[in-house]
């Protein structure tokens, strides 16, 4: 794709701006800022990635991954305001999802630990884990607010907090994992996912592109599951005090 062609695609943003202006949506400023940010951020990351790929340094690559996890965990933690140690839980949950899946992919020799492979793959893993962790926090907060009676009835019977919260935890994990599994179910039928589309656009044969996409689908299910489990079984503890009493939310 030529640079001119890329510039011409900006006309589609102009179309959005015109529609927003005509319909008085008031989104023009947001649209302009968003498209400018996309250009600036992607340009910067393009140069950073070029530098990191050329450097091919184990420590530096790992540092980039940790920064990605940190940023994602900050976003997810915002959804869990009110949960004790939410920032730490969010960071460890997303990091666990990444470590398990990346560890698996490398040990199965699906990919090597090289920045050009590990960074884009980790981006997908971390992004999906972030969404799952955000949904999980939101669902846990809702459940502990709305199903307080169920928890108290079980506590009254002498159930430990983990047992009293088990159904709520399961419900929250399901909420967190469903989008990933729903999108897995529709792969190839409703959508041609990002990685596969990218590879095909870059000239890779579709039969090779699907191999990568299948790997991505499997690794995302693993990452989302691990992150949801770690986050939920750690976060629920924060809703109780040392005497197994429910804290006020």
């Amino acid at each position: 794709m030529s640079n001119l062609a890329l510039v011409l695609t900006f006309s589609l943003v102009l179309l959005s701006l015109a529609l927003s202006y005509k319909e008085k949506l008031g989104l023009e400023k947001d649209m302009l800022i968003a498209s400018m940010r996309a250009v600036v951020q992607l340009t910067i990351i393009g140069f950073i990635l070029k530098f990191v790929f050329a450097l091919d340094n184990l420590f530096f690559t790992t540092l980039i991954l940790l920064i990605m996890v940190y940023n994602a965990s900050t976003v997810a933690a915002k959804r869990g305001k009110g949960i004790e140690k939410v920032s730490l839980i969010s960071f460890i949950a997303i990091l666990s999802g990444l470590t398990v899946t990346l560890g698996g992919l490398i040990s199965f020799q699906a990919i090597p630990y090289e920045p050009s492979q590990v960074i884009p793959i980790s981006g997908m893993v971390v992004g999906n884990s972030m969404v799952a962790t955000s949904l999980l926090f939101k669902s846990l907060l809702n459940n502990f607010q709305n199903k307080k009676d169920e928890i108290e009835v079980k506590l009254c019977l002498g159930a430990p907090p983990k047992e009293a919260s088990r159904d709520l935890i399961r419900d929250s994990i399901k909420t967190a994992m469903l989008p990933t599994f729903d999108s897995m179910k529709t792969l190839g039928i409703v959508q041609l996912p990002g990685m596969m589309t990218g590879l095909i656009l870059a000239g890779v044969a579709p039969e090779s592109a699907i191999k990568y996409q299948i790997m991505v689908a499997f690794m995302l299910s693993g990452a989302v599951s691990v992150s949801s489990f770690v986050a939920s079984y750690w976060a629920y503890r924060g809703f109780f005090n040392k005497l197994a009493q429910l804290k006020e939310l």
């Binding site: 108290e152 079980k154 009254c156 005497l243």
Partner: peptide, 28 residues
């Protein structure tokens, strides 16, 4: 707390039954 609550049991005014079936409550 679990030990104490099994010795001093509290039944609330609203009879909250959990799960879907009665059986789950009496096997709990």
């Amino acid at each position: 707390p679990t030990e104490l609550r099994r010795k001093v049991s509290y039944v609330l005014q609203k009879p909250y039954l959990f799960g879907s079936k009665v059986e789950e409550n009496l096997l709990y």
